[in-house]
Design a binder for these strands. Structure first.
Lengths: 113, 113
DNA sequence: TAAGTACATACAAATATTCGCATATAACAA
DNA sequence: TTGTTATATGCGAATATTTGTATGTACTTA
């Protein structure tokens, strides 16, 4: 089934941008309006809206309009777990590297005076 | 910590290509040589090697050279779980859509005669 | 050594993504 | 109606990714 790999790849592609990741992190505790979001993340509103559009098209995020504001939230809390798992994976790998370096030259942990 | 979102995004970017996903699926049961892989996936060897290089650079996959062959495997089995979780997420979402359609026009499941 | 097999890489053209800027829309206020 | 605020979108330039073609390297066998 070649479509499945297509869908899977597109899903990950939606997560493959630093700002989009920062948005998701900001939405961990619940919905946030676009205005506050652009203040918190220190990005132009237009840039933010563009990346929100990407997340919306992939159904990772939903917007709820209230008055003149739009409040965004993560559609499925499993996405948070996915983020955390991804980080655990490459964290493990960094630990592996640290261990390797430790083996090569023991005791050279931090370069502080 | 803006670097973390960078790393996270790069990690996902490595997973954001259909062929790379198909490679990972092929490596689920264990290591596979490049030659067999290109036969199984029906892609040119050069295309495969290029995408393997991407997966290698992101430390998602490792190659083990034996004679003139290189056997690739997934570095961390957690990556398999990550794939499965991602699929579960957008599968849930597809189910949501099906339910929604069902609500709108009940009983119109399949368009068979 | 020469030739063949397995895999990797360099480069350029085609394609896709991102960013900044301008503009559009929608809700609200005066 | 006009103006203002909040958000979205269209477009072009800059940038990154993908793909095909050619070539490189390493191992093996004759």
């Amino acid at each position: 089934m070649p479509e499945l790999s297509q869908f899977t790849a597109e899903f990950f592609k939606a997560l493959s941008h630093p700002l989009r990741i920062r948005v998701l992190d900001a939405l961990r505790q619940g919905e946030v309006g676009v205005n506050e979001l652009s203040l918190r993340l220190q990005v132009e509103q237009t840039t933010l809206s563009q990346q929100l559009a990407v997340l919306r098209k992939s159904n990772i995020v939903v917007g709820r309009k209230e008055g003149q504001n739009v409040y965004y939230s993560i559609r499925d809390p499993e996405i948070i777990h996915l983020l955390d798992n991804a980080r655990r994976i490459f964290n493990n790998h960094l630990i592996d590297i640290r261990d390797l370096l430790e083996q090569l030259s023991p005791g050279v942990e931090k370069s502080s005076p």
